[in-house]
């Protein structure tokens, strides 16, 4: 088989896989809609404001509730010493 045929076959297979994954994505979004609704119920009934992803410091656990300088307020000129502080940027636009 000449190399161009191998190349075009490979590209064709990849396009078919991508089409399958795209269909799978749409199907998963529809299938998990009930989960999203349940999460909304959780947020509404428990009055939640943030994702429980980074639990190491209060300004990473509740970025929407922390003030912009809380990373540095433990003592004057203290450094932000939690690794998640470099991933969760300070919020903007709040008071």
């Amino acid at each position: 088989m000449i190399k161009s045929k191998i190349f075009f076959s490979f590209i064709a297979i990849e396009i078919i896989v991508i089409a399958f994954l795209y269909t799978d994505a749409n199907h998963t979004i529809a299938a998990r809609n009930a989960e999203v609704q349940s999460k909304r119920e959780l947020v509404r009934k428990l009055s939640l404001t943030d994702f429980a992803v980074f639990t190491e410091a209060r300004y990473t656990r509740h970025p929407s509730q922390a003030d912009t300088f809380s990373a540095f307020q433990d003592f004057p000129s203290s450094m932000d010493h939690f690794p998640a502080g470099s991933i969760v940027g300070p919020q903007r636009g709040n008071n």
Binding site: A52, V53, F54, T55, E56, F82, P83, A84, I87
Partner: peptide
């Protein structure tokens, strides 16, 4: 491992 940082509880 990058996202986890120092968190003991990581979902």
């Amino acid at each position: 491992p990058v996202l986890k940082g120092w968190s003991v509880l990581f979902p």
